[in-house]
Design a protein around this nucleic acid. Structure first.
Lengths: 113, 113
DNA sequence: TCAATTACTTTGTCTGTCATAGTATTTTAT
DNA sequence: ATAAAATACTATGACAGACAAAGTAATTGA
C-alpha cells in the first residue's frame, strides 16, 4: 500500500472518525481535517469535501450540532459539538466495525495463506 | 450490531473475499455465495447481485477466469479459477486492509473511550 | 406434481467519496 | 506594502460498489 487508502476502504468510517474527534473537544471543520492528516501522517487522506458532507449528514441525524465561533480574532469558524445521540452512534459504529473485523478475519485469515 | 453489516463497511472487501475462497479451490458462483453465508452464519450478507458483479469485475481484470462445468449431471455451473494475477491482487488487498486497520485503530482507539 | 431450491443474469437506484471549482479572510515571505 | 500561501468554508456533478427487484430455467424434494 503506497500512501493512499482506497475510497472503498475508507467508506463508512468517516462519520465515526469525526464523532471520535468530537468526543474529546468541540472542533471546527478545517481543524478536524488537519487533525486527521496530522494524526495519521497524511496516510488517511480524507478530502475536505468528504468531511463537509459528513458534517452535514451528522447534523441532519442530530449526532452533532454546529455553532459559529467568536469571529473577533481570526476568520469565521464553524464549530461542531457532539450530542448524546452522537455519543450513542459512535459506540454503535465502533461495535459495528469490530464485528465486521471479526467476520472478515474469519473469512480471510483463518485457514489459508 | 444486529445481524447485518452495512453496505458501507462491506464495500471494497467483496473481491478479496471471492479471491480468498478461490485460492483453495475452483468454485462456481452460487457455491461461493453459499460458502460465505455458511462460514459466517449468515452474518456477512453479501447479495448474489453483488457477487456476480464482483465476478465480472475480477474477470475483466484477469484476476479470475471462468469456465462452464460438466453439465451432464445437474444444472449448468459456471466455475471460476484464480489466476496468478489474482493471487498477487489478493495479497495486495490483504495488505491494504491490514494497513487500513492499523490507521483506523490509531484514529479511533488510541486515546479515548 | 407442485413448491422449494439451485444457479445464473439484468436493470436501475442509492449513497459515500472524490474532483473540481469557487469565495473570502488571514498569515507569511519578500 | 504587497503578493503568495495557508486557512476556512461551500457547492456541484461524476463515479463505482452494493442493493433491490425481477426474471429465466433446471433440479430436487415433499
Amino acid at each position: 500500500m503506497e500512501g493512499r487508502i482506497s475510497a472503498d476502504l475508507l467508506r463508512g468510517h468517516t462519520d465515526t472518525i469525526v464523532l471520535g474527534i468530537l468526543l474529546k473537544n468541540d472542533a471546527y471543520g478545517y481543524q478536524i481535517y488537519k487533525s486527521i492528516m496530522d494524526r495519521t501522517d497524511g496516510l488517511y487522506q480524507l478530502k475536505e469535501a468528504t468531511l463537509y458532507s459528513s458534517y452535514k449528514r451528522l447534523e441532519k441525524e442530530a449526532c452533532i450540532v454546529a455553532y459559529w465561533g467568536d469571529e473577533s480574532q481570526g476568520g469565521r469558524r464553524k464549530y461542531y459539538r457532539i450530542t448524546d445521540k452522537g455519543r450513542i452512534q459512535y459506540k454503535q459504529n465502533i461495535a459495528d466495525w469490530e464485528f465486521t473485523q471479526r467476520i472478515l478475519n474469519r473469512l480471510l485469515k483463518e485457514e489459508d495463506n
